[in-house]
Computed example of a mutant assay.
Amino acid sequence: MHRIRKTIHRYCAALMMVAGLVPAATGARAAVPNVWGFAYVDALAGPPPAAHQGLSPAGVITSAWTLPNLVEVTFPTIPLTDGVVHVTAVSPKPEWCQVAKWGPGAPGLSVQVRCYKYGGAPVFVPFTIVYEQSSGTLSPPEAVAYLYYDGASVASSYNSTAGVNSVAAGPVGVWTVTLPGLPTTPTGNLQVTAVDPAQPARCKVGNWTPSAAGQVVEVRCFDATSKPLKTGWTLSYTRQRAITGGAKPPKYFAYTMDESPTTPGPYPPSSAWSYNSSSGPNTVQDALPFRWVRFPGVGVLPDDVQVTAFGPGPEYCQLGGLWSVSGAIVDVNKVACFNGTAFTKQRTFVTYTSAT
């Protein structure tokens, strides 16, 4: 049924492209997103703060609480339902958020998000959310790829080199993703989010081993008490592009990996996985019990931040509080990581984008 629905969506997208509603691929820079949206959802109902929501085509995002831990976010101008969604909890406690599902809304695109405490108790937690859907190709060094794995097969996929992304299942809770045609070294940024409508689930980057095949990423997922779990998930890869898939616009975006979380800092991560569209030197340092990521020169509202943990264990990472923007400097000064219910040092991928 999902594949039939997906075919219908692609057919509708093709009709929209013919009608001029979705930009067609027109050259080396054609891999801009067809549609995208992001928001910081901090209330049970109503529009998210204007300073932290962006949408293309333009519109006003809304959210509504429908169950004890189910929030429905509506992107009213987005007609497609493939693409990918990522969410990041904003809490200093051992909690997380995951995507339950997404599909047609009234109007536009509806994304359902669930949040949990460690152990599995449902809870409302503020969160950031980003959605994007892309087409076309890109010339290096810029690159974008994503896929949605529904627990059994690839349900949505995109690669800016026109390569065919693939997933190989390993032991329970472990998958190997191959994104062909992309750089054969560890460069760029990754984001991973669990997708499960029925049970608590957390997903992360377990390993990153690019090869001649392209970018090779291991995804690991865990249940409410850190046991390996078979579930669905989304993955995005970007290089010199925003998490929304675009560049110029947005002119202001950055990403980095905290490659050395035990280093007090401030230190500049390797340029292989740290990029700033304004050429500023991204830095990472302690802000105990959190980590502090600074992106200079790109702070323009409205904006979005996403965080994903990196490593083979059950540790998970999020935003311990809202980031700040002052004088074009972005301070993501509360990156929080947990092992069970305890704070821990953990490698993380952090990505920032403006809508501008």
Results as ranks from 00 to 15, higher is better:
residue 114 R to K: 11
residue 235 L to T: 01
residue 279 S to M: 13
residue 28 A to Q: 10
residue 59 G to H: 10
residue 70 L to H: 15
residue 59 G to P: 03
residue 295 F to Y: 15
residue 190 L to D: 00
residue 284 V to P: 05
residue 43 A to N: 11
residue 34 N to E: 15
residue 121 A to E: 13
residue 122 P to Y: 08
residue 11 Y to K: 13
residue 226 S to R: 13
residue 307 V to C: 00
residue 292 W to V: 01
residue 213 A to I: 00
residue 17 M to I: 09
residue 104 P to M: 07
residue 241 R to E: 02
residue 249 P to K: 00
residue 53 Q to K: 06
residue 344 T to L: 06
residue 69 N to S: 14
residue 220 R to L: 06
residue 243 I to L: 15
residue 212 A to Y: 10
residue 267 Y to M: 06
residue 344 T to W: 12
residue 230 K to T: 14
residue 305 V to D: 00
residue 140 P to M: 07
residue 289 P to Y: 07
residue 244 T to Q: 07
residue 113 V to T: 03
residue 196 D to W: 04
residue 214 G to L: 02
residue 354 S to P: 02
residue 168 A to V: 14
residue 292 W to L: 08
residue 222 F to I: 04
residue 151 G to F: 10
residue 81 T to K: 10
residue 101 K to Q: 12
residue 182 L to W: 06
residue 4 I to A: 14
residue 150 D to I: 02
residue 217 V to P: 02
residue 129 I to W: 00
residue 102 W to L: 00
residue 308 T to R: 06
residue 338 F to S: 02
residue 44 L to M: 08
residue 14 A to G: 11
residue 96 W to V: 02
residue 126 P to M: 06
residue 63 S to G: 11
residue 108 G to P: 00
residue 4 I to H: 13
residue 214 G to W: 05
residue 349 F to M: 06
residue 199 Q to P: 00
residue 123 V to N: 07
residue 277 S to P: 02
residue 253 F to G: 03
residue 308 T to M: 06
residue 189 N to V: 04
residue 126 P to S: 10
residue 195 V to I: 15
residue 157 S to P: 06
residue 308 T to D: 02
residue 251 K to E: 14
residue 13 A to H: 05
residue 237 Y to S: 01
residue 221 C to A: 13
residue 282 N to C: 09
residue 198 A to R: 02
residue 277 S to M: 06
residue 64 A to E: 13
residue 31 A to S: 15
residue 223 D to T: 04
residue 281 P to F: 07
residue 98 Q to R: 05
residue 233 W to H: 07
residue 345 K to R: 14
residue 14 A to L: 12
residue 291 R to T: 01
residue 5 R to F: 14
residue 353 T to N: 12
residue 326 S to L: 08
residue 221 C to Q: 10
residue 73 V to E: 00
residue 49 P to S: 08
residue 166 S to F: 09
residue 250 P to H: 09
residue 340 G to P: 01
residue 133 Q to R: 13
residue 265 G to L: 05
residue 289 P to T: 03
residue 306 Q to D: 08
residue 66 T to K: 13
residue 139 S to L: 12
residue 50 A to H: 08
residue 7 T to A: 15
residue 169 A to G: 06
residue 251 K to N: 14
residue 241 R to T: 02
residue 112 Q to V: 01
residue 8 I to H: 10
residue 193 T to Y: 05
residue 114 R to P: 04
residue 179 L to T: 01
residue 99 V to H: 07
residue 264 P to V: 09
residue 274 S to V: 05
residue 207 N to V: 01
residue 36 W to K: 05
residue 334 K to E: 08
residue 79 P to H: 11
residue 254 A to M: 08
residue 192 V to S: 03
residue 318 Q to C: 04
residue 331 D to A: 11
residue 46 G to S: 10
residue 312 P to C: 03
residue 5 R to W: 12
residue 99 V to T: 13
residue 251 K to D: 15
residue 215 Q to S: 01
residue 269 P to L: 04
residue 107 P to A: 15
residue 319 L to V: 02
residue 10 R to V: 11
residue 10 R to M: 14
residue 300 V to W: 08
residue 204 K to W: 04
residue 294 R to I: 05
residue 332 V to R: 04
residue 195 V to F: 06
residue 306 Q to G: 01
residue 349 F to K: 03
residue 13 A to M: 12
residue 164 V to E: 15
residue 309 A to N: 03
residue 175 W to V: 00
residue 224 A to W: 08
residue 10 R to S: 10
residue 280 G to R: 08
residue 308 T to E: 06
residue 219 V to I: 14
